[in-house]
């Protein structure tokens, strides 16, 4: 199925959003069987499935002649447009919650602007996704409040923010082809959306009993060191893509093309 949705800029924006969801999903799925409790394990699996489903909704707009598997699986790192934040390896549960919070806050804002946008089919899908994202936000916020209950929790959460805030700098740093069309796409400049996101993030961190350095916060609002939105990814994405491509699949498997 192929849906033509107007302009290249729209397609490029949706591709970036789809890649975010696809890559974020892989990271959540790494928690299966190793979550902090079995109940939470199930929640993380559920979020992983949500994100895969969201990616599919956007990829379906862009498929043209390519299959879902080809577009999801068989693209090289430099062809991907996800933020480097979501490709980052989760080395600790604190990473998961901080990424969950930073990314889903940004995503919620982007989706809300798309819901209000002129393209009806996109608005409808954005709205479907937004409903599930509310749960993801609730998940992040509940855990932030609970993880700061011990000194170790505060320490780990602070470290995660220090490491991940700089990696969230590319969340709104789309290619000029997209940002030039911001009025048509989302009704407001992407910079303004970034400012809103930054304000929410800053206020939330401020409300937590942890000290995050001004440097890390400033980095989140500065030009990104790695910009995934223009294909400038970190080694984490290569590692992730390597991990999803098994080498010993029979040749007629959808995902076997990556190594061919």
């Amino acid at each position: 199925m192929s849906v033509h949705c107007g302009s290249d800029a729209v397609e490029q924006l949706l591709l970036a959003l789809a890649d975010d969801e696809f890559v974020a999903s892989q990271r959540y799925a790494e928690w299966v069987t190793v979550g902090p409790t079995m109940e939470e394990d199930n929640v993380l699996s559920s979020i992983a499935q949500d994100e895969m489903g969201h990616a599919r909704l956007w990829y379906e707009f862009l498929e043209d002649d390519q299959s879902l598997d080809a577009i999801g699986y068989n693209r090289r790192p430099d062809e991907r447009r996800n933020s480097v934040l979501v490709e980052t390896e989760h080395t600790d549960f604190a990473d998961t919650i901080v990424i969950n919070f930073l990314y889903d806050t940004a995503e919620q804002q982007l989706l809300e602007t798309l819901c209000a946008g002129a393209h009806e089919a996109i608005a409808r899908r954005a709205n479907t996704i937004l409903t599930e994202e509310i749960f993801h936000r609730e998940h992040a916020e509940q855990w932030l409040a609970r993880l700061v209950s011990t000194a170790e929790g505060r320490h780990r959460l602070r470290n995660a923010f220090e490491r991940l805030l700089p990696r969230s700098a590319d969340l709104f740093s789309f290619e000029p082809a997209i940002t030039n069309q911001s009025a048509e796409l989302i009704g407001i400049p992407f910079d303004e959306l970034r400012d809103q996101w930054f304000k929410t993030v800053d206020e939330t961190i401020d409300s937590l009993p942890i000290e995050v350095s001004d440097g890390a916060l400033a980095a989140a609002g500065s030009p990104p060191e790695h910009n995934g939105r223009t294909g400038g990814h970190t080694a984490d994405l290569t590692q992730l893509l390597d991990s999803i491509h098994a080498e010993n699949l029979p040749k007629d498997h959808p995902a076997s093309g990556y190594h061919a």
Binding site: E39, N42, V43, F135
Partner: peptide
């Protein structure tokens, strides 16, 4: 209680 509700939604 709050977390129990959240967990329950997906369990």
């Amino acid at each position: 209680t709050k977390m129990a509700l959240s967990l329950a939604k997906r369990n």
